Amino acid sequence: MTDSSSASRGHGLRRDIDLLEALASDEAQNAGGLGVVRLAQLVGREKTQVSRALKALAAEGIVERDPDTLEYRLGWRLFSLVARTSESRLVRVAEPVMHTLSADLEETSHLCVLSDREVLTLLSVSGHSFRVHGWEGRGVPAWRLSAGRVLLADATPDELYVRFGTTGEMPVQDLWTLIQDARRQGYARVSEEFEEGLVGVSAPVRDFRGRVVAAINISAPKARLGERLDEAGRTTARAAARVSSLLGWEPRRTPLLRARLT
């Protein structure tokens, strides 16, 4: 391969990336897609060139075209590739941040994800001799944990009813209130709600789309952490924001939840 052909291919890849970034923009996400004319304006290229590039990307599943509006959006294959690597990347990115957090607070931190109605712990990092036993891989009802309340931050009221409305454990109205409190504060806190003598705080980790994909949790005996629970919450929120940033999240892209519980 000659230097000129390599440069040409590299330039073509750069132009394709420009198109993908335009389709990932706030404008495209809010509109549900963009047409060829608008994309050509955004990337500064001829409409015919953009049309050819989009057709090639669509043939590979990297973008998709709405048959009704004829507008383009990011495609299934791109999201499939992201999904396959997201969990391992999440753990890899979060672990060093959690080590720092656990050392700063001298408490155990946990990386948690949502699985249906339960919270699962992917990783625990100890910053103290005290360990919350047996958490990794163990599922706990989401409504009982601070982690569950931040992991449900993007849920609509209807989704909460579908997921928890028949459990009878906690009225959905009460759960909604707790979730909104956590959203406003930037972290959730519990004090002996899950286990006597145990307190905890959790903050959300967001991916590049602004969606909550995990929670970082700090749990400890009330005798040791109870009086500094809000301080721990703020510190945990900063750590979670750091992980979110490493995953590509920009605060301005965080979606606003507009649904209301009636």
Rank of each mutant, 00 (worst) to 15 (best):
E118H: 00
V119Q: 03
S124T: 13
V125K: 08
V125W: 03
S126V: 01
S126Q: 08
G127I: 07
H128W: 09
S129I: 14
F130N: 08
F130S: 07
V132S: 13
H133W: 14
H133Y: 14
E136Y: 00
E136W: 00
E136G: 01
G137E: 06
R138G: 00
R138L: 09
G139I: 05
P141Y: 06
P141Q: 03
P141G: 07
W143N: 10
W143C: 10
R144F: 08
R144C: 11
R144D: 13
L145E: 09
L145W: 09
L151Q: 11
L151S: 10
A153E: 11
D154T: 05
T156N: 10
T156S: 15
L160C: 06
Y161P: 00
R163H: 03
G165R: 11
G165V: 12
T167S: 10
P171S: 01
P171L: 02
V172R: 03
L178N: 12
I179C: 00
Q180E: 14
D181K: 11
A182W: 02
A182L: 02
R184P: 01
Q185V: 08
Q185G: 00
A188Y: 01
A188L: 01
A188N: 01
R189H: 01
V190H: 12
S191A: 09
E192V: 04
E193K: 03
F194P: 00
F194Y: 11
E196N: 08
G197N: 05
L198R: 11
L198P: 10
V199T: 02
V199M: 00
G200V: 12
V201E: 14
V205Q: 06
D207H: 10
G210D: 04
R211N: 10
V213T: 07
V213F: 07
A214L: 13
A214G: 11
I216F: 04
I216G: 03
I218G: 04
S219K: 01
A220K: 09
A220G: 10
P221N: 07
